[in-house]
């Protein structure tokens, strides 16, 4: 599993290539955990992944929960129809911002993050 991290504007993109099995998913999770405290939103690009295991799908959900805890937004792009179907059938898909391209993902994630911030401000009265 290769992990390539670059940025689109302020949004880091974590581009994965290779087999996303259990150990690789742990590595991805750790990398993203380093990014989340520093950025409002992160994009995960799965278009280079060759296969996805159930462990890795669970890891993605774990990433979502960690992002949620920090008030961050994660967008996912490059879902194969099979992975999209699995995430949809298990309800996992509802937790991600899904986009058709990395650029769209960055925009969508930023928009969702801003939405979240505005909601937070509204609730706190600030």
């Amino acid at each position: 599993m290769n992990i390539n991290i670059y940025a689109i504007g302020q949004v880091p993109v974590v581009a994965l290539s290779g087999a996303l099995d259990g150990p690789a998913a742990i590595e991805v999770r750790d990398k993203i955990n380093e990014l989340l405290p520093l950025h409002e939103s992160v994009v995960i690009d799965l278009s280079g992944t060759t296969c996805v295991s159930s462990a890795s799908l669970r890891t993605m959900l774990l990433i979502y929960r960690q992002a949620q805890a920090l008030g961050r937004t994660v967008a996912v792009v490059g879902l194969t129809p099979e992975v999209h179907n699995v995430l949809d059938a298990t309800g996992f898909l509802d937790f991600f911002v899904v986009a058709g391209s990395v650029d769209d993902g960055a925009v969508a994630a930023s928009a969702r993050a801003e939405e979240g911030l505005n909601r937070e401000h509204a609730l706190s009265g600030s």
């Binding site: 159930s54 699995v86 298990t90 309800g91």
Partner: peptide, 19 residues
């Protein structure tokens, strides 16, 4: 399960109940 091959049938059933 549509996700039986991945061993995710537990999540799929729970998703069904939740829905």
């Amino acid at each position: 399960a549509a996700t039986g091959r991945f061993g995710m049938q537990c999540d799929e059933v729970k998703h069904l109940v939740k829905a």
